[in-house]
């Protein structure tokens, strides 16, 4: 029996910063429903210490969750030279938008850039498919 499956996985609070990526943009233009676009979009880049504390290896999936939504995406260590524990980077995409708050205070501008969410290992769960 895998007793590990009964243990609760470590969870971290994150501030997610979204960004643009030229390779992702190219993949979007070529095939927005294709594998390459999904691989370059459904992705979160964590500080390597955060990745280790979550008991994750590169390419494993994580659940990102807040009161606005939940998505499963792949996780990897960021290539940042400076540590950024508690802050993670995610390409701007329909996956990051699932977590964006709709509390706009009547301004008409959702908070796309600085998203608060928790992260936990998805234990092998697949990347969220975009269905409406």
């Amino acid at each position: 029996m895998d007793f590990g499956s009964f243990l609760s996985a470590p969870e971290l609070k994150l501030k997610i910063v979204t960004y643009r990526d030229i390779f992702q943009n190219k993949a979007l233009i070529e095939d927005r429903f294709g594998e390459e676009y999904i691989a370059k979009s459904a992705l979160i880049k964590l500080d390597s210490v955060d990745l280790k504390n979550l008991s994750l290896k590169k390419g494993e999936t994580v659940i990102l969750k807040n009161s606005f939504g939940k998505v499963v995406v792949k996780a990897e260590a960021s290539d940042s030279e400076t540590p950024h524990r508690g802050i993670a980077y995610m390409p701007n995409s329909p996956w990051s938008n699932r977590l964006v708050s709709t509390e706009t205070g009547g301004t008409g501008v959702p908070r796309f850039k600085e998203i608060e969410a928790t992260v936990v290992s998805a234990k092998g769960e697949k990347i969220t498919e975009l269905e409406f």
Partner: peptide
């Protein structure tokens, strides 16, 4: 493509 670019609850 607002379904890709807007928050889920707006979609």
């Amino acid at each position: 493509d607002p379904l890709a670019n807007l928050p889920y609850s707006i979609i």
